[in-house]
Design a protein around this nucleic acid. Structure first.
Lengths: 210, 210
DNA sequence: CGTATACGAAACCGGCGAGTATCGGAAATG
DNA sequence: CATTTCCGATACTCGCCGGTTTCGTATACG
């Protein structure tokens, strides 16, 4: 084994043309797009390759199967995510929540929800995918909400006995329901009315003067 | 056309062995079951026929395609539904809501949610199915909640300015989110905590003495 | 320049499932 | 009993898609 430890050095830098790393990200992004539009079963590898401007062979050289590609693509959504270390801190729960639903974040959340809908029916058959999707799509948002709620509770802004778990899941639940099941768009008005008419009253935050 | 208007009479009562109406209901029920377990793409006509104890020909004699069968099966879920004329009326909003989440109703709702999850990725490509599914699965529950909320508001039990639309969708949204996305079971404790810790506080109902 | 690998494109293979056809038997009419 | 249609079972066709291979070309190393 390892007949020539001459030039190839420690690891990598093998012979021949090196892989183009830009194909990886293009393929993963194309996978997310097609997944959001068509769902897992409606998505074909040819669609992904065409969208990425790549050949099928280039896809299969990197991922052994369609399922592996999708799991990897979903997992990669987690990276460009909201960092819990730099959550908004405006001094009020309402200010923090409003800051969290600003436009670019909302558009990203919308695509994530469609991806979630596209793989829903698979999740019972693919536990690994289910866990990956939850960690990449839902977990970060719910965790952020939980941190904001606990902060507000600890400074006495909410009732002390609020059910943090339920309230942290409230906005993602209502938003996904509206997008996927009711098929109505998520508007800023919708999100703000959710905050002001449902979440804050449920947390016992006294309504500020209009 | 119509060469022999002799015996066949006005309509129906044609020649030969008549259709067995029990096969229709068996096939529709089997369709719902397989749909809830496998999703639309995972479901095959052979699965449905086998589950119903029928042959494929018997299925295709009644429905021209898989899509038509599924649309019909989903639409039929609406029938055995909660009748808005006989909603609970216990005198308090909390009593009405608790009565609405009793066990048999909850089990039915759980299966409906799984059906919803199984057809989610299709709904963008099949608008008719999307409308049918909404009318059969979500609409009745939301409408019931809306009626109970308006009744409570009109007798002064809630704040007068509650957002009925948002609050009526709250329980279905949180329940479907927990079932489909978080993949955790819907327990009676969960539903009651939803009522007591989220919905009633958001509606401004004063908490009764423990 | 020779070798080895990556690339996009396209041909190819194999399995699966929607939909059709056939068969032997059962149930209705006449 | 003859006819017609239904029934469950099964064999069949056919298109699609996951996955593999081939081909001509491009890009690295030595």
């Amino acid at each position: 084994m390892d007949p020539q430890a001459t030039q190839p050095a420690a690891a990598g830098a093998r012979l021949g043309r090196p892989r183009d790393a830009s194909r990886d990200t293009d393929i993963l992004e194309a996978t997310i797009e097609v997944l959001a539009e068509q769902g897992f079963d409606g998505m074909t590898i040819d669609m992904v390759a065409a969208r990425a401007g790549a050949g099928k062979a280039t896809v299969y050289r990197r991922w052994p199967s369609k399922a592996d590609l999708v799991i990897d693509a979903v997992a990669c959504m987690k990276k460009r995510d909201l960092d819990p270390a730099q959550l908004p801190d405006t001094g009020t729960l309402r200010g923090d929540l409003i800051a969290l639903v600003r436009a670019p974040s909302a558009a990203d959340a919308d695509r994530k929800m469609h991806v979630m809908g596209g793989i829903l029916s698979l999740m019972s058959r693919e536990p690994e995918l289910a866990r990956t999707a939850y960690a990449a799509i839902l977990q970060p948002r719910i965790t952020a909400n939980r941190i904001l709620l606990e902060r507000a509770r600890d400074r006495g802004e909410t009732r002390p006995d609020i059910d943090v778990d339920r309230l942290a899941a409230l906005m993602p639940a209502m938003a996904s329901f509206r997008t996927l099941a009711q098929r109505e768009p998520i508007t800023r008005e919708f999100l703000i009315s959710l905050i002001d008419d449902v979440l804050l009253p449920a947390a016992g935050v006294v309504r500020a003067a209009v």
